[in-house]
Design a protein around this nucleic acid. Structure first.
Length: 321
DNA sequence: CAGACGTGGGG
DNA sequence: TCCCCAAGTCT
């Protein structure tokens, strides 16, 4: 048993053999599990278009599935294509986004739709390089779209994948700092034949999302438990320093959220006074938050000094002429 | 590269 | 209650 453990040289890229099979993650194990455990998420249904998948990826950035679920279906029914989305005003899009969080994503999604409608004939690009150039699309989202919408065998690395790889392959309690080059190399090495690669990536993410979770992993029901290096090493706890938890209460982010909330709820524009009551405690902070919202294009000031969501319909009785 | 950027639910 | 964290992107 001790000799067994001695063979686990996870400091090196040696493809160790356990029970006659390669170490780390076996595609068959993972895919077999996924066939039964896959969640029935609406954006995975047959007939969902690349654009609609892209919308789900925007919404899922730093946001739990449970909070995206109630929004996505109505959203894609209302704006099924890039051109339909582009035809809406940013204000419409920001309102539909509601309190999903990080409203800049909504703005970028609208910008992304505009570019795709105008420059790509309303067709979402299928290659990572092109996708990465679009507003709001970074390395993860570009790969997710290429993989999940177009079935391309590209590595898709999100926080779930990084955690699963850190544990199962590297024997660490959690992922080290992100490193695109290393992360992609890690996953590329795991990818099975191109026919199964896309589903493998979906399965890897799914495992991290519902089994190999950050807080309390359910190793007992993990399809990788027999060869997971972290588990074989005795599931050691994390060693490195915890990065300080980010505060929210009292931050500019909270103020921005509060101000935007006022604008979302008003049908037309609002006065400076209405902005002020949304955050009366600190005028300096309030002005800073408002300025940043203006700067981000999330809010605009009208000629009469009132504030509104960008592209907001001004045709109300109080609008100046 | 560290820090900003929303929001709310679960342990 | 408080803290952690959830399919990242941009500067």
């Amino acid at each position: 048993m001790s000799a067994f453990h001695a063979d686990i040289g996870f400091e090196f890229g040696i493809p160790d053999i356990v029970h006659g099979r390669p170490m780390s993650i076996d595609a068959g194990d993972l895919l077999g599990w996924f066939d039964n455990a896959e969640r029935d998420l609406p954006w995975r249904a047959a007939g969902v278009t690349p654009w609609q998948i892209l919308v789900s990826e925007f919404m899922l950035q730093q946001t739990p599935v449970a909070r995206v679920l109630p929004l996505w279906t109505d959203w894609v029914a209302r704006w099924p294509t890039p051109s339909a989305t582009a035809a809406a005003t940013p204000a419409d899009v920001l309102r539909a986004w509601g309190k999903l969080g990080y409203p800049r994503r909504a703005k970028r999604l609208h910008e992304c739709a505009t570019v795709i409608a105008r420059d790509f004939a309303d067709v979402v690009p299928d290659d990572v390089e092109t996708l990465e150039q679009l507003p709001g699309i970074g390395s993860y989202t570009a790969r997710a779209v290429a993989c999940f919408a177009y079935r391309k065998p590209v590595p898709v690395v999100d926080t779930n994948v990084r955690r699963v790889v850190a544990r199962a392959v590297h024997g660490r309690a959690d992922a080290a700092g992100p490193s695109a080059k290393r992360d992609h190399a890690d996953v590329t090495a795991l990818l099975p034949d191109s026919a199964r690669a896309a589903r493998f990536s979906a399965a890897l993410m799914e495992l991290g999302a519902i089994v190999c979770t950050a807080r309390s992993p359910r190793c007992d029901s993990c399809p990788l438990r027999e060869r997971c290096r972290w588990r074989l090493a005795g599931s050691p706890s994390a060693d490195g320093p915890r990065r300080p938890a980010q505060r929210y209460a009292g931050t500019d982010r909270q103020v921005r959220g509060r101000l935007l909330d006022v604008l979302r709820d008003k049908e037309f524009s609002v006065t400076r006074a209405e902005i002020d009551v949304a955050w009366p405690m600190d005028a300096v902070q309030r002005e800073r938050a408002l300025a940043s919202l203006l700067d981000d294009g999330l809010v605009e000031q009208l000629a009469d000094g009132r504030f509104a969501l960008p592209g907001q319909d001004r045709n109300d009785s109080t609008a100046s002429r």
